[in-house]
Amino acid sequence: MNEQELREIVKRTLHRIAPEVDLDSIDGKTDLREEIDLDSMDLLNFFVALHEQLKVDIAETDYSRLTTLDGCVQYLREKTGAV
């Protein structure tokens, strides 16, 4: 799986949580919690969905690394060994 595919998965997953947001218009470095108004339940649902799709374990202490689009992709690349 390449970076582009990971990014698509992340976006698709976010879309299910925040369907009204145009994810293409979001800067990869913005804090998603602020930008698209995710609360802790949204974030948990987001992480669970990523976990289920990609079979990656995300430690609670790593949550803060997954608060931007770029951060998510970078983290998932490391975890999945994607190029």
Binding site: S40, M41, L44, F47, V48, H51, E52, D57, I58, A59, E60, T61
Partner: peptide, 14 residues
């Protein structure tokens, strides 16, 4: 945090 670190992601508590 201790409790959650021992739990699978879907079973963690808020």
């Amino acid at each position: 945090e201790r409790e959650n670190s021992a739990r699978e992601l879907p079973r963690r508590l808020l």
